[in-house]
């Protein structure tokens, strides 16, 4: 085999590997929420909202027709996103989901690139809201976000893919299926990478 042929094959192998790796990199912040599916049988209400690339483009297009400032902020926020996935369960009584159910999601958020940026526990209300961010690459650019909001009778998981401005995250509350989570109240100081849920007790 000639040297130039070997080089060409190596280059082709390299390009195939890089090309194949690109979608995986883009999807790396996507959480697997299938383990929560079993809760559907116990839940009084289950809501699943799925907005991936084409749907977000549509959303961005239609929001542009709305002239109010809030819609403009939401539009600005979603225009570069790759996906918004929301799964929420509402139960008639407490104890219908277990820590194990939530831990299966938390386990995925211990992977490379993920860090918890907000952890709020309200002992009085028995509410626990955690916000995780995935940052990758030399510039630590944000690749995605995950929110777990656990209440005695409610469990919500929000997974956002793509670059997102954390300061504007609260603008998404109440839109695109993202429930109102009072993120503004529980927001961690800018630059803080990991918060302990006990901090806010």
């Amino acid at each position: 085999m000639t040297i130039s042929l070997k080089r060409s094959i190596r280059l082709m192998v390299f390009l195939v590997l890089v090309w194949g790796g690109l979608p995986a990199y883009g999807q790396v912040a996507r959480l697997q929420l299938n383990n929560l599916e079993k809760l559907s049988k116990k839940a009084a209400e289950v809501v699943d909202v799925q907005l991936d690339g084409p749907m977000l483009k549509l959303a961005s297009k239609f929001l542009s027709q709305d002239e109010d400032a809030e819609a403009a902020e939401v539009k600005e926020l979603v225009k570069d996103l790759k996906g918004i996935y929301v799964k929420s369960f509402e139960f008639d009584k407490e104890g219908e989901y277990s820590d194990d159910d939530v831990d299966a999601i938390r386990a995925q958020l211990k992977g490379p690139g993920w860090s918890r940026i907000v952890g709020v526990v309200s002992k009085r209300e028995h509410e626990n809201t955690e916000v995780y961010m995935m940052a990758m690459g030399a510039a630590e650019s944000i690749q995605g976000l995950a929110i777990i909001a656990a209440e005695p009778k409610e469990l919500t998981v929000v997974n956002i893919l793509g670059p997102i401005d954390l300061d504007k995250l609260s603008a998404l509350e109440g839109h695109m299926g993202v429930p109102k989570l009072d993120l503004e109240k529980g927001k961690a100081p800018v630059g803080r990478r990991a918060g302990s849920p006990d901090d806010k007790k």
Partner: peptide, 27 residues
């Protein structure tokens, strides 16, 4: 949801429609 019903619907809908919302109310 989660039974064969989801795939039954997705097969029928085909690739041109994107799943958007699913709401289950046992109540």
């Amino acid at each position: 949801p989660g039974s064969d019903f989801d795939s039954f619907l997705q097969d029928a809908v085909g690739p041109e429609f994107q799943p958007f919302v699913r709401v289950l109310s046992q109540r």
